[in-house]
Design a protein around this nucleic acid. Structure first.
Length: 211
DNA sequence: AGTGCGATTGACT
DNA sequence: GTCAATCGCACTA
């Protein structure tokens, strides 16, 4: 039984299939929920960096808290691509944040990837992060982007294509999914648009929000 | 050219 | 738990 558990939770045998665009739900909230348990893969010169998504936030069309709310600008352009494209931006002078565009071309909405469970390339991710505690390697949107080597170069790339950065699935269903308000915003702060896998140690946020 | 403000993080009490 | 660093962006003039 110990071996069974190891097989399901360790990175040893990781069979991933690319996520085709047609498999992505065509609405922002549904996509945010769908992405829990899926994978972000980034192939870099040092090898494959990969994490399982355990926390997301939806920023639907017309959401005052979303970057697309002000209309299309040079910075948020990628949010207006059809679903499945990367929107990466630089926040607080220190962190890159990775989002997945989530609606039809021209609409403007996205899903923020807030936390990953490290699955492959852990040594290289630790090197890129300056080797902190494993628990903090990809817990938080800025941290996971740094670990995966995601920055403005990936802004606008197709995550359902054949590029080095893409989404994937292991075909398994995730554990129980919890919801809460979104973290770090002030507008529309009451909406329950944050999704996370219950009990997963790599989920960010306070105990109160992760109940 | 100047201003205000974050979809955060790491250091610290 | 609290708090400030940090800088690109959008907006005003």
């Amino acid at each position: 039984m110990a071996t069974r558990k190891a097989a399901s939770h360790n990175s040893g045998e990781l069979r991933l299939r690319p996520l085709r665009r047609a498999a992505l739900p065509a609405a922002t909230r549904a996509l945010a929920r769908f992405l829990i348990g899926k994978y972000v893969v980034h192939d870099v010169p040092q090898g494959r960096l990969c994490g399982r998504i355990v926390e997301t936030e939806a920023y639907p069309p017309g959401d005052a808290a979303g970057h697309a709310y002000i209309g299309e600008t040079r910075r948020n352009r990628a949010l207006f691509l059809r679903r499945g494209h990367a929107y990466v931006y630089f926040a607080y002078g220190s962190s890159y944040l990775l989002n997945v565009s989530s609606e039809s071309r021209g609409v403007g909405a996205g899903v923020l990837i807030r936390a990953l469970e490290p699955r492959a390339g852990i040594a290289e991710m630790e090197r890129r992060r300056g080797s902190k505690r494993l628990r903090d390697l990809t817990r938080g949107p800025g941290r996971l982007a740094e670990a995966l080597g995601v920055d403005l170069r990936q802004n606008g790339v197709d995550l359902c294509g054949h590029g080095t950065l893409r989404l994937a699935s292991d075909g398994r269903k995730p554990g129980a999914i919890g919801r809460s308000v979104r973290i770090g915003i002030t507008k529309d702060a009451h909406r329950l648009l944050r999704f996370y896998e219950r009990g997963n140690p790599y989920v960010s946020g306070s105990r109160r929000l992760n109940h």
